[in-house]
Amino acid sequence: MDIKTTVIEIIDNLFMEDISDMMDEDLFDAGVLDSMGTVELVIELESTFNIKIPVSDMGRDDWNTGNKIVEGVKELQNA
């Protein structure tokens, strides 16, 4: 399974929200993510992809859309 599909599946499992048609929409504004949800998402992403997401990388504007989350995971896997 590719990263994009896996991220969509993780968000769907955690928040009961299919974001596949809203990959560029702000997930905070859409009510999908909040501060606690972000923590849950980070833990799941780190576990699933065997990466470490630095707190400094978790600014709301950096990881606020599905596509930004996918790109962030790709960058951390290639670091």
Rank of each mutant, 00 (worst) to 15 (best):
M36D: 00
M58V: 11
I19T: 06
P54Y: 09
F28W: 07
V55S: 00
G59L: 12
D12F: 09
S56G: 09
E17V: 05
E17F: 07
K4T: 01
N13A: 15
D2S: 14
G72Y: 12
D24P: 03
F15I: 03
V42I: 15
D29L: 15
T6L: 02
N13V: 07
D2G: 05
D29A: 15
I8C: 13
L14E: 13
V70G: 03
T65H: 08
E17I: 01
E46Y: 09
K52N: 10
T65L: 04
R60S: 06
L14A: 11
E46Q: 14
I11Q: 11
E40A: 03
G72P: 10
S35D: 04
I43K: 05
E9W: 00
G72D: 08
N67Q: 15
I69D: 08
G31T: 13
E25Q: 08
N13G: 08
I10C: 09
V73N: 04
V73E: 04
I69G: 06
N50Y: 10
T5E: 12
I69S: 11
V39Q: 05
T38F: 03
D2N: 14
T65V: 09
D24W: 07
K68Y: 01
I10N: 08
M22S: 14
M16V: 09
D61N: 15
G72C: 10
E40D: 13
I10R: 10
D29Q: 14
E75S: 11
M22T: 13
D18G: 04
E40F: 09
G31I: 13
S35F: 05
R60G: 01
I3Q: 08
S47F: 08
D26R: 10
K52V: 10
D2L: 11
R60V: 13
D2M: 06
N50K: 15
A79P: 00
